[in-house]
């Protein structure tokens, strides 16, 4: 169930290749800091450097605004898409500008795009998409930026380094490659802004080429549609996978709902936390744990709220080894 309907916005929006006019109704909803906007569902912000890489995501999108090289689109009720332009500075500028206006409603940031690979003799393959764990930056001053930003996918083995400079010699390549195997022009700027606004970010990079002096930029540009389709498919697969990963949360929620216990919100929150810990200790499904507990106490003369507290204590006893000392 979505809180607001984009159909009105689509009807009033400008074509995706249009100027800088705004969709009034949607813009009001998305940009205003009125009490209404605080009740809006949180959305994802997908960020691309170029329209070419984003085009497959935009088939039914509506443009919300455009300013210079940056444009913001609404893909659907849960996802906005920002074209930030090329380079670290533009990425910081566009992302921060967008988040500054949208802060209350954006819950996480995704960067999609192409990148180069600095290791020709490695296991990395062209046209494959990698999730990035950390991003570093290399500056105009021929040195690393001391700041790096970890994505939400901390377990990924792939890192990326953003650089404003064109890699012209082996020394530069060596320096960049110490930090990461993948290289792009924007991610560090996007991650910097995300950090400034306290938002988590993810990044998915498709390798377009192995970095060398005579790389053919036109060939890469000509494959933009193909890259965009691959990135879009990756996004679809990722969303499906994320739904599965949320099953533990769902399991806990439904086990609690079906438990027949009287749960205040604070008790529910505590149980939720403790059940999550229990899953680390024990592979037993939550619902069978609750069912076992219910059958154990069925003969005890307890009120539903007392039962709930008893359940919490039972889990805490199981979890806290110091009570056994």
């Amino acid at each position: 169930m979505f809180f607001f309907d984009f159909s009105e916005a689509v009807a009033t929006s400008v074509p995706t290749n249009g100027g800088c006019a705004k969709s009034d109704a949607l813009t009001k909803l998305l940009f205003s800091h009125s009490p209404i906007s605080n009740r809006l569902p949180a959305v994802n912000l997908l960020i691309f450097a170029h329209y070419g890489e984003a085009q497959s995501f935009l088939s039914s999108a509506s443009k919300l605004w455009q300013k210079g090289s940056m444009s913001l689109f609404a893909i659907d009720e849960q996802n906005l898409l920002l074209i930030c332009g090329e380079g670290i500075e533009k990425a910081i500028h566009a992302t921060s500008y967008c988040l500054g206006q949208q802060e209350a409603k954006i819950k996480r940031i995704y960067n999609f795009g192409v990148c180069g690979c600095l290791e020709a003799d490695s296991n990395y393959t062209i046209d494959t998409i990698y999730s990035i764990s950390s991003v570093y930056a290399y500056s105009h001053l021929d040195d690393y930026s001391f700041r790096s930003f970890a994505s939400q996918d901390s377990q990924s083995p792939h890192s990326c380094i953003s650089t404003p400079v064109r890699i012209l010699n082996e020394n530069q390549r060596t320096k960049l490659n110490y930090a990461a195997a993948l290289v792009d022009r924007e991610l560090w700027g996007i991650a910097f802004s995300a950090k400034t606004f306290g938002l988590p970010y993810y990044a998915f990079k498709l390798i377009s080429d192995f970095v060398k002096k005579d790389v053919n930029c036109f060939e890469i540009q000509n494959k933009a549609l193909e890259y965009s389709q691959k990135l879009f498919q990756h996004w679809m697969d990722y969303k499906k996978q994320s739904l599965n990963e949320h099953s533990l949360d769902q399991q806990i929620s439904s086990a609690l709902e079906e438990s027949g216990l009287h749960l205040t919100q604070s008790l529910k929150d505590k149980l939720y936390k403790e059940f999550k810990k229990l899953q680390i200790l024990n592979e037993e499904p939550i619902d069978s744990w609750v069912a076992k507990f219910n059958s154990e106490i069925q003969n005890e003369n307890l009120l539903p709220k007392q039962k709930a507290k008893f359940l919490l204590k039972r889990i805490e006893d199981t979890l806290n080894p110091h009570l056994r000392l």
Binding site: S134, S148, P157, S159
Partner: peptide, 18 residues
């Protein structure tokens, strides 16, 4: 000039240790 110039992901050690 390399080591410690920026925070490199700790879990890198599983895949790419220099």
């Amino acid at each position: 000039n390399y080591f410690g110039k920026f925070r490199k992901s700790y879990l890198n050690k599983r895949h790419s240790l220099d």
